[in-house]
Amino acid sequence: FAAAVGGVAAASLAAAPAVAQALGGGARALGVRRVQTGENFQGVYWRDGRYESQALRQLDWVLRDPGMEEATPMDPRLFDVLAAVQARMGSDENWLVISGYRAPETNAARARQSRRVSRVSLHMSGMAADVQLPGRASLQLARVAAEMQLGGVGLYRRDGFIHLDCGPTRRW
């Protein structure tokens, strides 16, 4: 387990310069809308070299498991991934979030329904989101995100969304 955690940490540190390059040194803003609840967040989540705790709490709530009404502290690096991909795409549209945090019970139920759901999903750690960006094809988004090598990228073309996470760089 320690080796796996160390690998995740090393991969995350390697992604930090790429995020900084994509987003620059100024404030980082993000807009998201949760598909199931219609709730939104739009605003600055990083300013003056640090994450804004109030914004992170709001994002945690919007990305909660809506079936369980359970939130978890999301890894703020996920928001960096979303912001960097959005910037590279040249979009100012809000991300549509299909799935953010998943309680272990929710993830287990989904894994029983579909082999495409990992039983050790990073959604349970607050490190992943399944998203759409209006006006952008899922294949185009997945290609750009994979090229940026900021974390995991999954293409679910039939369902019209991509999976983005701040874990090790990989794709499927």
Rank of each mutant, 00 (worst) to 15 (best):
L56F: 02
V32M: 13
P73A: 09
F79C: 14
W95I: 05
D80M: 03
A103N: 05
E69M: 11
D80Q: 09
R47V: 14
F79N: 01
A55Y: 11
L59D: 02
M68K: 14
L96N: 02
L59K: 02
P73L: 07
M74C: 01
A103K: 03
M74G: 00
R28K: 15
G67N: 09
M74N: 00
R47H: 13
T106K: 02
G43V: 08
D92M: 04
R110L: 12
D65E: 08
S99V: 15
A83R: 02
V117C: 09
P66Y: 03
G31M: 02
E52K: 07
F79Y: 02
W61Q: 10
Q54T: 10
A108C: 08
E93L: 15
R57Y: 08
E105N: 02
S99E: 08
L63G: 11
A15S: 11
V85I: 09
R115D: 04
E39F: 12
N107E: 11
N94D: 13
A22T: 12
G90M: 15
L96E: 12
Q36A: 15
T72G: 05
A108N: 00
G49T: 12
R47W: 12
A55C: 07
E93S: 10
Q36T: 11
W46T: 08
L78Q: 09
L78D: 15
N107K: 04
M89Y: 10
E39C: 03
G24R: 04
W95R: 05
F41E: 08
W95H: 01
N40A: 13
E93A: 14
T72S: 01
A111M: 06
R116A: 13
D48A: 14
G67P: 09
Y45Q: 08
D65A: 06
G43D: 08
L82C: 07
R110I: 03
E70S: 11
P73V: 01
Q113H: 00
A103T: 13
T37M: 13
F79A: 01
L96P: 03
L96H: 09
A111W: 08
A109Q: 06
P17L: 04
V19C: 01
V117E: 04
A111E: 00
R28Y: 10
D65L: 06
T72K: 07
A109I: 07
P73T: 12
A83N: 06
V19P: 05
P66N: 13
E93C: 15
E70L: 15
G100S: 07
R115C: 03
Y51D: 13
S53H: 08
L78W: 07
Q21I: 05
A87Y: 08
R57M: 13
Q21D: 08
R115E: 09
R33F: 01
A27Q: 12
T106L: 12
Q54G: 10
N107Y: 10
R47C: 01
G90P: 12
R64C: 09
D60A: 11
N40L: 10
A71W: 07
R110A: 06
E69W: 15
Y101P: 03
T72Y: 01
R88H: 04
T72I: 05
R47Y: 10
R47S: 11
Q113L: 13
Y101T: 07
G26E: 05
A16K: 01
A29V: 06
R47D: 10
